[in-house]
Design a protein around this nucleic acid. Structure first.
Length: 812
DNA sequence: GCGGATCAC
DNA sequence: TATGGTGATCCGC
């Protein structure tokens, strides 16, 4: 007995080691951290790996120390101010939207295989089959990896309501079932929390006849249906029944078990799916109370994106659970970046993406390899070349070319270095990549000379794949070249003389330092001496000459349009990027492209009513059709239609024409009235009320089947309507897309923040009376005068459709 | 854009 | 016994 236990402990410890010391993720709860650390120390003491771990830990501790010092310098004034900014009104609003988006499911298939994949090939095959099943429930499901996928089964559930029993009936294959082999404490514990889910999912008792019953189906037709046809299982029509069905089918087909989470957004769904691993499911009902309950004591470490380091840093601030995270939001806003803070806030409120983002474009591709110590430079170069070849092959499969080559070096002490080089035109072949990587490697070797680099890992990465904008840019630069061509060409000799060294560079080495056309020039010199390396460049040369006439013509057009329009520096009202000195036409094209990206008309409307700089462009130039008269009228009609805030409307129109201002909203005045603090909680309450009234129609409409499963007691019985009314600006939004709508509300809300800041910064006047429960008026008035992007760092790149940072994504 | 670092899977 | 590979993102510079 004793020895068995010991053995188990050893296994656990072994596993922990492999899992990177993470004792907080699912299945690791309750293990003694101290003990783990001690064991790890013993196991690795003296090793270089451990030495490096220690070093990294020290760095983290230093970071924490810096943070604590920063915290100590925060005055109570600053904290109060931050409190104001940390938007408690997020809270009410977001939950409502979330409640309106039921049925998100995170499925995590056979996670145990991710630790030790015994037969990867089979697993891949299995994964395909699995995925076939998933497509039945959501053809647009998002596969995160081989063993993880997100589904939005909202639509499926709606259809499912009317499905005959036959369509939900499945037969149990005998001798194939992998029953949950530990139905012990853990499962029972969970089932206590979610009474609707039987502790044994795939036993012979059909879900609906399980002794514990299914409260969510009390009113559904299933109760009247016969449940057992010998080895058949009939699944119900609820979300959890559907998910059980999915898991059942997966298990039957693949003999592998899966865990699943059902929740209103992807973040929660993921946490849920971990809750009952490896063969179970967990549901968070799409209502605010359920989410609150779930979030309350949830350790932040469970949330995707909060890793070891973030956990430690937050722990130093006394933050372990989501509740604590929420309570400290003001402090966090002062200590962390905008991006991080938003992420934290979203987590603490149980917010997450309700979008299943389509696969974004790949950003980079790399190969890397670990090996036993390698110190000889020749070997290193040769390995580098090999890696480049592999990478080039992979790139070719996806037809990718990029401009940034990065090498990664890890020495025997586990210290990692990356060295990157970005060239002006894309590369993709092994030779091109190696030409750059080799130089990077050489620089590192030279730097340590006469000591060799003692490497244990080397990697090569290619990134900066051109997007549409880059392609345009490249066209522009080509045009620019042609434009200057007459003069520049005659000066070529001079340019090359600028740096003696450059004259001796081969074209590809040159590419690191010079523009495409400089390269072309030198290429002429080298092409006969080094045909091998010029292969790719020659392709470009060919393309260039092919399109020469076209480009020349474009160039002429551009010139004339620029002349006639008097070129001007524009800032795009959508992406807020300065567009440089381009023609109005080009600028409009850019704005159109921006608008057409993720948006539909609602998007434009949103901007047209909220963003001063966009209307400024419109007014001044009177040409930009994206903000047409038609839309203005449309917008005004909306306001009339909604029959509210006529004063605010007037104010809005009036302020439309204000020139865009670049305002710093970061600087905080020390003046800050106590009144504002006192008002804070009340404002939150009011906003919440407002929100619920405004949104409940949405909830009813979109909750569909979910609502049937679990009546939402807090939803008032109101007329169901298609219209969404923003609770902040009170304007009806002509969209049924909740994400677009959500974005709009985000804007409106942030107007309020900006306004508060403006007041502090500019007027020092006490806040307007808050006797009105409607904060929208103020928010709107000032916001129209305020340039929104000031709130967010323009340097932040946020992936569109990112699963998190809904807000950030919008303000990208 | 670069380099280090964090995170997920 | 010795401690992975790939990709993404953020932050400070």
């Amino acid at each position: 007995m004793h020895s068995t236990k010991e053995k188990n402990d050893n296994c656990k410890d072994d596993l922990l080691l492999r899992m990177g010391l993470n004792d907080n993720k699912a299945g690791m709860e309750g293990l003694d951290k101290e003990k783990i650390n001690k064991i790890i120390m013993e196991a690795t003491r003296g090793s270089k790996f451990y030495g490096n771990e220690l070093k990294k830990e020290k760095q983290v501790n230093q970071r924490i120390e810096n943070m604590m010092q920063q915290k100590a310098q925060i005055t109570s004034q600053q904290l109060r101010k931050a409190q104001l900014q940390s938007t408690s009104n997020y809270y009410a609003r977001r939950f409502g939207v979330r409640a309106a988006m039921p049925g998100f499911i995170a499925k995590r298939l056979c996670p145990q295989l991710t630790i030790v994949p015994p037969n990867f090939d089979k697993y891949q095959a299995v994964s395909r089959e699995v995925k076939e099943i998933l497509a039945d429930y959501d053809p647009n499901f998002m596969a995160m990896s081989l063993d993880e996928a997100y589904l939005n089964i909202t639509k499926h559930l709606q259809e499912r309501q009317n499905w005959p029993e036959d369509k939900r009936k499945y037969f149990i294959k005998t001798g194939n079932s992998l029953e949950n082999d530990k139905p012990g404490e853990e499962v029972n514990k969970v089932s206590e929390q979610e009474r609707s889910i039987p502790p044994l999912l795939f036993n012979d008792i059909p879900p609906d006849l399980h002794p514990q019953g299914n409260p969510f189906q009390a009113n559904s037709e299933d109760q009247n249906n016969p449940q057992i046809l010998q080895n058949a299982i009939v699944f119900g029509t609820s979300a959890e029944e559907a998910v059980k069905e999915i898991r059942f089918r997966i298990e039957q087909k693949t003999t592998l078990t899966a865990s699943a989470g059902i929740a209103p957004n992807t973040m929660l769904a993921k946490v849920c799916s971990d809750k009952n691993k490896p063969n179970g499911q967990y549901q968070i009902l799409p209502n605010r109370e359920a989410v609150m309950d779930f979030i309350k004591d949830l350790p932040i470490r469970k949330v995707s994106g909060i890793g070891k380091v973030t956990e430690k840093m937050l722990k130093a601030l006394g933050i372990i659970t989501c509740t604590e995270l929420y309570q400290q939001r003001a402090l966090l806003s002062l200590l962390f970046s905008e991006t991080s803070w938003h992420h934290f806030l979203h987590i603490s409120l149980g917010l997450g993406s309700t979008l299943l983002a389509r696969d974004g474009d790949r950003k980079s591709m790399s190969v890397e390899r670990t090996f036993s110590e390698m110190s000889k430079a020749e070997e290193q170069y040769s390995l580098c070349q090999e890696l480049c070849s592999e990478l080039a092959q992979d790139l070719q499969k996806e037809g990718l070319k990029g401009r940034t080559v990065t090498i990664k070096l890890k020495n025997v002490n586990f210290e990692v270095k990356t060295r990157a080089c970005t060239v002006s035109s894309v590369v993709s072949t092994a030779e091109e990549i190696f030409a750059i990587a080799k130089d990077l490697l050489r620089t590192e070797i030279d730097a340590d000379f006469p000591h060799p680099l003692r490497l244990r890992l080397m990697g090569v990465r290619l990134s900066s794949f051109p997007n549409e904008e880059d392609k345009k840019q490249q066209q522009r630069s080509i045009i620019g070249f042609l434009q200057a061509g007459n003069q520049a060409l005659s000066a070529t000799g001079h340019m090359l003389e600028k740096t003696d060294k450059d004259q001796f560079l081969k074209p590809l080495e040159m590419s690191q330092k010079k523009s495409f056309f400089d390269k072309k020039r030198s290429e002429r010199k080298w092409s006969q001496q080094d045909t091998f390396k010029c292969e790719a460049v020659d392709t470009q040369s060919l393309q260039t000459s092919d399109s020469f006439q076209v480009l020349k013509k474009m160039n002429e057009n551009l010139e004339t349009s620029e002349n006639s329009n008097k070129s001007q520096i524009f800032t795009c009202p959508i992406c807020f990027r300065e567009q440089g000195s381009i023609s109005l036409e080009a600028f409009n094209k850019h704005v159109d492209a921006c608008l057409d990206g993720p948006s539909i008309n609602e998007d434009r409307k949103m901007f047209s009513c909220s963003h001063a700089s966009s209307t400024e462009v419109n007014r001044k130039e009177n040409v930009h059709h994206s903000f047409s008269l038609h839309e203005k009228q449309d917008y005004e009609t909306h306001q009339k239609h909604s029959g509210i805030n006529s004063v605010d409307c007037a104010e809005l129109v009036e302020t439309k024409g204000n020139p865009p201002k670049a305002e710093s909203v970061g600087a905080l005045s020390d003046k800050h009235s106590k009144e504002e603090c006192a008002v804070f909680p009340r404002k939150s309450f009011n906003t919440e009320q407002h929100y619920q009234n405004s949104f409940s129609p949405v909830s009813l409409e979109d909750m569909g089947s979910s609502q049937q499963e679990s009546p939402q007691p807090y939803l008032p019985e109101v007329i169901i309507t298609q219209a969404l009314v923003c609770p902040i600006c009170n304007l009806e939004q002509k969209t049924s897309d909740l994400n677009l709508f959500n974005m709009h509300v985000d804007i409106c809300l942030n107007k309020g923040i900006i306004q508060e800041l403006r007041k502090d910064n500019l007027t020092n006047q006490p806040r307007e009376s808050t006797k009105s429960t409607d904060t929208s008026g103020q928010a709107q008035k000032t916001a129209t005068k305020t340039k929104r992007p000031g709130m967010y760092s323009s340097s932040k790149k946020v992936k569109p459709n990112s699963p998190r940072h809904t807000l950030d994504t919008f303000f990208k």
